[in-house]
Amino acid sequence: MSERITRDEVIHVARLARLDLSDAEIDEFAHQMSDILDHAADIEALDVGDIEPTSHPLPMVNVFRADERRPSLDRDEVLGVAPAEQDGQFRVPPILGEER
């Protein structure tokens, strides 16, 4: 069976997820992801026209909380577990060329 996912697609998805894959891994994931899509294709072949899409595994809607304040965390404690901090803020490496 021909592969549904190309090496280029794996490289693209890996870049989106900031993953650095070796050549061997790229081949391996191209295979695995194609297998997953093959499985999805089997399901796609079934007639599910009468079945409501499952939006959530639990038969539950409208779970809300009241708009009431709860204590926030202590900042020193929070920043204490961060790799780097400065002036009460998280300090992160430069975000090169990736403005949102």
């Binding site: 708009d67 304040r69 709860r70 926030s72 965390l73």
Partner: peptide, 27 residues
């Protein structure tokens, strides 16, 4: 203009003191 954030009970208010309205959910 709610009192709290969308998914947690941290205050929804402008604060000049950074990272004071944070909790496990919004972090």
């Amino acid at each position: 203009a709610t009192r709290t954030k969308l998914f947690c009970g941290c205050a929804n208010e402008f604060s000049t003191d950074p990272n004071t309205n944070v909790c496990p959910v919004c972090l």
